[in-house]
Design a protein around this nucleic acid. Structure first.
Lengths: 357, 357
DNA sequence: CGTGATCTTGAAAGCGCTTTCATATTTGCA
DNA sequence: TGCAAATATGAAAGCGCTTTCAAGATCACG
């Protein structure tokens, strides 16, 4: 299929016997063109099958109507939802969303930011606030607005659309302590370059400290965000001589993995050990037992991020967004800690394990 | 933050005492510039913090280096993975991916295609092959390449990167029939405007026909792709007077829903009823019982789609991609059909249900 | 060294659109 | 009906870059 000789705005102008300027106006603010010409132009456009050239518009108007979004991943349900919500909201304002994945790697993210800046995006959607300050400098040098999601406070609060990960984690731990738990284990994502994971860990630790408890280093495992990694970590944590009575997971996939592994190891949840998640994805209410977790308002966050960015794009002077609410959702995977021994099934499973060694 | 007066290629040229043309060459094919000048230019670029203007490049070179991707949804794990794979592969060739969601709605898809065309994308990634022919006409009129994923054959086979949904479904049903099943129920996505769902249904039907069986209209339920809808459908299907011995799900979320509902209804899977999925997402191996399903090579598909598109973008004359292999993964959710009655638990659950009415 | 072949370079012409700015044209109102 | 005010239009100058094209620099080799 050969590219037919391009039909330009000028062709339309000629066909409609008006000047190019008028056609341009027709496209951008039809109201400023006399109705009679309007129909002439409309007809010409349809007749010729004219399609405006985005690059030319962008060059002349100095706006691309494109927003760059850089997500850590799209391969789990975590970022897809908010991204879709964001796209929907901002798309209805005439913007296009370009995406890239950083794979939780700050170097990759940096490259993507740079690329987006070169593409001339009008705005940027990022996850988390922690990154090389040089990145922020670059963005600000281009003078484009950006929004940071999944976090609420930082030294850039006015760009943050999200929630307070630390507070949510604290709240969760308070609840667990009130249940009677004293020995905690935690499965976290890698905290380097991940301020969400850091905040959650920090929240856990500070709540623990507040109650005179602590999280020993060997009770904290960092793992990639997938269920298998969660399984593995759970197994290790629970194979210790005197295993925790509760496993707090910094992200939900870890919790699913923990639950699966618990099942395979014949652990009773919450009888032998309580397990908590973080995010409340759809599966959380369907596992057995259903997962106690923290609900994060992801769809709302995506939409709010879009609105916030739109406001900035229109040059509005707006206040820093208010942090979104998280909710502790108590289901059946948490209960008071076991008294003394693990249940027979779990014990024999563990014995078996050691016997094999 | 004020936008500093833009630094253009010309500024760089001046700073490096060369012509703009040379700077342009430096950027696009450094090898054609003498080393000595190369360093001068490089220095100037860094010193000035020059960032090329994508729109101008696009306008002058008539290429945006942007690929438009339109997915039905990002909010389930189904499309995120392949999209991420696609982005990674095509990103490493210097392309940017813009995404939009059609929400399984062909009108929305049409609008997004149009928008992408106006944005001047260099290529298009779509899901499925069935759409208004006018859409294809528009795309072809712009002369840009496109690839259709999740399907393998169509009257546009040379654009398809995917697998044979119908054949995979047939294969699955053959297996179920060989197990002894005669009474089938199916939970499908909405088949209107969804050729993947259509093909799967068609595959089920033709295998059934081949074995002298059939799928009655009231044994086929169409539902949105989410577990709750699957639950609902499963409940209805299994509440019939003489319920099916196997429920075939056209998509995996439905199967998860079916499994959850079975658990809640005290149905034994596969004792009372077998359940199958389609796609083999990560959860499939972790449900109880683990799900028998069809594995679709989604990551591979994303990468191949990228490579195929790249080849076309480079004007290579390439053969139609070969359909990718799907695999029947037999786990524990399928077995020979129950003999006679449902298990006591399931029966009482059903009785209870009717009693309530 | 000379000379044709090969590399590098710069000047200049766009790419297709938006956006002043100045010039019609229409409108409101006396 | 007339005149200032408001509105619609067109001419033309870019937006920042790529890409001929032709000329200048460099090279290989006899």
């Amino acid at each position: 299929m050969k590219r037919r000789e391009t039909i330009t705005l000028e062709d339309v102008a000629q066909a409609a016997s008006v000047s190019p300027a008028t056609v341009s106006r027709f496209i951008n603010q039809p109201a400023s063109v006399r109705p009679e010409k309007r129909t002439r132009i409309q007809d010409a456009i349809e007749q010729l099958g004219y399609v405006p050239n985005g690059a030319a518009r962008a060059l002349a108007s100095r706006r691309t109507r494109m927003i760059g979004a850089i997500m850590p991943s799209l391969d789990n349900m975590l970022f897809g939802g908010p991204l879709e919500a964001f796209q929907k909201e901002i798309g209805s304002a005439g913007y296009t969303v370009a995406v890239a994945c950083s794979e939780y790697d700050d170097q990759q993210e940096q490259v993507h930011v740079r690329n987006f800046l070169e593409s001339g995006v009008d705005g940027l959607l990022l996850v988390g606030a922690q990154r090389d300050s040089q990145v922020y400098r670059q963005i600000e040098q281009q003078g484009i607005p950006y929004v940071l999601t999944w976090v609420s406070s930082d030294n850039r609060t006015d760009h943050c659309v999200g929630f307070d990960n630390a507070a949510a984690a604290e709240h969760l731990v308070d609840y667990l302590v009130s249940l009677g738990h004293r020995r905690f284990g935690m499965i976290s994502g890698f905290i380097a370059h991940n301020d969400r994971a850091q905040a959650r860990l920090k929240g856990v630790r500070s709540a623990l400290t507040r109650h005179g408890l602590s999280l020993e280093d060997d009770q904290l495992l960092q793992r990639p965000f997938d269920p298998d990694a969660g399984r593995d970590a759970f197994h290790i944590l629970m194979s210790a001589p005197n295993p925790p009575t509760v496993i707090v997971c910094g992200s939900e996939p870890h919790a699913y993995g923990a639950l699966f592994e618990a099942r395979d190891m014949d652990f009773n949840v919450p009888g032998d050990v309580s397990v908590t998640g973080f995010d409340d994805m759809w599966l959380a209410s369907q596992t057995s037992p259903p997962l106690t977790t923290v609900r994060t308002p992801r769809g709302k966050m995506g939409r709010q991020a879009a609105r916030h960015l739109l406001a900035k794009l229109q040059g509005e002077r707006i206040a820093a967004p208010r942090p979104l609410e998280t909710t502790l959702v108590v289901r059946k995977s948490t209960a008071a800690p076991r008294k003394g021994e693990l249940s027979p099934g779990a014990r024999s499973a563990l014995m078996l394990k050691y016997a094999q060694w």
